[in-house]
Amino acid sequence: MRADPVTGEVLQGPLEPVYVYEAPVRLAHWVFAIAITVLAVTGYLIGDPVSIQQGEASESFFFGWIRTIHFIAGYTLAIMFVVRVYWAIVGNKSARSIFVPPLWSPRWWKGVFAQASYYLFIGKERLWVGHNPLAQAAMFFMFTLGVIFMILTGFALYAQQWGWGLTPMNLFGWQFVLFEQPQTLRTLHHLGMWYVLLFVMVHVYMVFREDIMSGQSVISTMINGVRMWKAKPRAH
């Protein structure tokens, strides 16, 4: 089998299974999936909380728990992200693809448009060893950059409870100057959630569609790491 070194497009058969997603990549994927779900639900509740209209304040820590869960999930996401960045450096080519998409390569951009035109029912389907270039672009711009933004702004908002002059604020407080004041940061963090959620929606739809309709395995690949092929070699 021969694949394009830049885009990962399969150019020539015979098709054979390829180990694309290594264990840390798959682990990170599912940790991210769970953490983002928890963060989105609790985060939304922090922005627009459910109100308890009775009892003594000392009897309940309801909102406190929602925030605690949000913080734990946030830490989990951040730590996993750091591990994932480490693996992007030491792992295989697919481990790197959502961090450094080859934005400088015209061939890669051609791949982006080819895949887009396939989704618009114009172009023909192509097979890819790793992420297809369009997915790679979406993952880089919406997931990777989105999550980095959310981790940074999230830790800045989290640092506020220590106040100025202590380590958390020294590390992340610069964002309050960059974005004028804490309320702006809060609003941006909230908008960031929707940005990542948009990615999640399209991502989940696309993996199911790809898994059902395309010539390659998708969902099982993120479980066992192996790209399988449903397409048959073209008869000559």
């Binding site: 021969r2 399969v10 150019l11 020539q12 058969g13 015979p14 098709l15 023909k124 389907e125 097979l127 059902i212 309709m213 395309s214 010539g215 449903k230 397409a231 048959k232 070699p233 073209r234 000559h236």
Partner: peptide, 17 residues
Amino acid sequence: QARSKTRNDLTSVPEKK
């Protein structure tokens, strides 16, 4: 998907160059 006859009509790669 329903209109296409078989999957193999949709996707294929050349076996040889």
